[in-house]
Amino acid sequence: MAYQRYDYEVIASWIQPGERVLDLGCGDGSLLKYLADVRQVRGYGVENEPDRMLASIRNGINVLQLDLEQGLAGIEDDAFDHVIMSLSLQAIHNTQGILAEMLRVGHEAVVSFPNFAYWRHRQAIINGRMPVSESLPHQWYNTPNVRFFTIADFEALCEQEGIAIREGLAFDEGKVVVEEPNFLASVALYRLGRDR
């Protein structure tokens, strides 16, 4: 789950100075700390896992221990400029619910996730084994991930749910992948909005 610098920089490039942001699955709060440094954002991390919540407090991050499976009830519509979920969407059961919640409480959402259709993952499956890689570092029996989906799957879901893809970038080993991202990229990153 280690954040890559390229992930940070792209997210920062999508955020205006001084914005209010919510970072879902904030881990130890390092992304928020980075965004506070380079974009002077104000905001909160959400982290339900006790040790990571504690790590965020140690890092001086505002962290709220909430269960994302229960949505963001209690947070008002449009309370944030951006709601970010970095490499956590695949670990949540209620995929459609949380995407809707992100776009309810935020003007825009930023989502990144591992691409299950990455060529190394395909190769592992062809060889008869579940993929284990930098972006999917766990074994099948201990992975926190509960949803396995591809770049093509995600874009189809956005289409179905009326979610506007404002920008999308795909990466392999920290470099942007332009050609055939669903085959060549290990991680995808999107800026999402609400369709009119």
């Binding site: 919540m53 407090i57 505002n62 962290v63 947070i75």
Partner: peptide, 10 residues
Amino acid sequence: VHSDKRVSYA
């Protein structure tokens, strides 16, 4: 949160 205060919750 809605009044833009710094807060953590455990």
